[in-house]
Amino acid sequence: MTGDAAPDEGAASPVATPPEPPVVRRSGARAASPWRERLSRWDVRYSPYVYISPFFLLFLVVGMFPLVYTAVVSVYDWSLIGGKGEFVGLQNYRDVLENPYFVKSAVNTVSIFVLSSGPQILIALALAGLLDNALRGATLWRMGVLLPFVVAPVAVGIIFGSLFGDRYGLINEALNWVGLPSVSWHTDRLASHLAIATMVNWRWTGYNALILLAAMQAVPRDLYDASAIDGASRFKQFTRITVPSIRPTVIFVVITSTIGGLQIFAEPRMFDSTLAQNGGSDRQFSTMTMLVYDFGWHLRDLGRASATAWLLFLLIIVIALLNYVLSRRFGALAHLTRRRR
């Protein structure tokens, strides 16, 4: 994905310039047979595609097939146990859109996404900037920020679920201890979103920081030396050199965290203490994927579950495109201001 963004941006990205396919013309240095020549031409022209084909073949089976199959299921009356029923056209989509929980879940999803992805990328940028300095035991620190990532999300959910317990949770007891009132983490809509975003951020910030750090390490050091001579502060160097230089990577991180953030499931589900685990008693933190699960496995209606999954897919595409455009716009502005000076 980094590769997609790079070519039209040109020089600003030393990190992610994709290797150019070797376009070589070997026009008869020796008098080879025409058949051999043709073979070798084909080799040069088509081999690269053959080499990358395993990925795409695999993707067809595990990526595209479910996508298309889900679309097929979504236009049928399809029960979890009973299987395929009648063709119902867009009725499942209509049912889902009219379901009172759909809008609620969509709003929750976007809200949790904004609360998690925003701070997450800013903190990851700052963290990566700090880790980019010459530190003693650099590898230790760098691996350290990745530690939360290796903890299974379900474990994170259980730990944070008990930290954020409404009545006997550690955080509320700490709040009470300093004289503040308890927060209803599982009942108050915004509070529950904050708690879940905290979980997500705890897990993903370090991971994103490492990706950004890798990009930062490829920024030519002479840029920093030159700016230092010009009298730029460390902060100015960071905002004017580092961030613009790693823009394709930032876009990559923004887009992957958009996709991950909008599909959030394990954290809110483990956070939920109600028996049905639909995202709070009044669906305060029910997300789109939880709604898919609710339709598919509680109501045992795969038709509506698939329709919801497709609506989620469309939402992700829209938001990812929006992010992409915004990040480019933001990047282009940074570019302009830099050129103007």
Partner: peptide, 13 residues
């Protein structure tokens, strides 16, 4: 997560 990162990318080409 991994699987879906590919979706938006592919749908552009």
């Amino acid at each position: 997560m991994k699987r879906s990162t590919r979706r938006p990318a592919s749908s552009r080409t």
